[in-house]
Computed example of a mutant assay.
Amino acid sequence: MSLLFFGKDPDTDGDECPTVWVDDQNADLVLQGWKADSRTEAECLTVGRIPETEAVIRIPARLVPLIREACDAAERTELR
């Protein structure tokens, strides 16, 4: 597996910030984000449980352009 780096949140300290990658073998998006607060998790739980192997994270809206770019790359990878 190799992760293709797309970028970090430009408005954070550059060390501990939301980040976007694409796995070049299976085209999965890999996202690092802020852990959701309990209120957000509670609202998410209204539609189903959160398994131990999953997490609710927040990605700032300013990363949308990087996520779009990563989605485009993931689609290109998946088509190969």
Rank of each mutant, 00 (worst) to 15 (best):
1 M>W: 09
22 V>G: 00
25 Q>G: 12
3 L>T: 03
36 A>H: 04
2 S>T: 15
25 Q>F: 12
67 I>H: 01
21 W>Q: 02
64 V>G: 01
50 I>C: 07
41 E>F: 03
41 E>K: 11
12 T>E: 14
17 C>N: 12
64 V>I: 15
12 T>A: 15
56 V>K: 00
80 R>I: 05
56 V>R: 04
10 P>A: 15
67 I>V: 15
63 L>R: 01
17 C>P: 08
45 L>H: 09
58 R>K: 15
12 T>Y: 14
69 E>F: 04
17 C>G: 15
63 L>C: 05
22 V>A: 00
32 Q>C: 04
54 E>Q: 13
40 T>D: 09
52 E>H: 07
44 C>Y: 11
41 E>N: 01
25 Q>C: 08
1 M>P: 13
41 E>V: 15
18 P>W: 05
76 R>A: 14
62 R>P: 04
45 L>N: 06
48 G>C: 14
63 L>E: 01
18 P>I: 02
52 E>R: 08
8 K>A: 10
67 I>D: 00
39 R>F: 11
25 Q>M: 14
36 A>R: 07
76 R>Y: 06
13 D>R: 06
79 L>C: 05
73 A>W: 01
48 G>P: 10
11 D>I: 10
18 P>Y: 07
51 P>N: 05
1 M>F: 14
37 D>P: 06
32 Q>R: 10
56 V>S: 03
79 L>W: 08
24 D>H: 11
18 P>F: 07
24 D>C: 14
19 T>C: 13
23 D>H: 10
68 R>C: 13
19 T>L: 06
4 L>W: 06
65 P>S: 12
56 V>F: 05
71 C>F: 08
3 L>R: 05
17 C>H: 03
50 I>Q: 09
53 T>D: 08
29 L>I: 12
74 A>F: 07
9 D>V: 09
61 A>D: 11
3 L>G: 00
69 E>S: 14
53 T>L: 06
37 D>G: 14
2 S>G: 14
52 E>V: 09
18 P>V: 02
36 A>P: 11
11 D>E: 13
31 L>N: 05
17 C>T: 15
54 E>W: 01
54 E>K: 07
15 D>S: 13
41 E>M: 15
50 I>S: 08
42 A>C: 07
29 L>H: 08
6 F>L: 09
48 G>H: 12
63 L>M: 15
17 C>K: 02
79 L>N: 15
36 A>Q: 04
42 A>R: 11
44 C>N: 03
61 A>R: 14
9 D>S: 12
51 P>A: 02
47 V>W: 07
5 F>P: 04
23 D>K: 05
69 E>T: 12
75 E>N: 10
35 K>G: 03
22 V>F: 00
30 V>Q: 00
74 A>I: 13
41 E>Y: 06
10 P>H: 04
28 D>M: 06
35 K>Y: 13
76 R>V: 14
20 V>R: 00
10 P>C: 06
5 F>N: 03
20 V>Q: 04
27 A>G: 03
77 T>K: 01
59 I>V: 15
13 D>Y: 10
41 E>L: 09
38 S>R: 13
58 R>N: 11
40 T>R: 10
27 A>Y: 09
31 L>G: 04
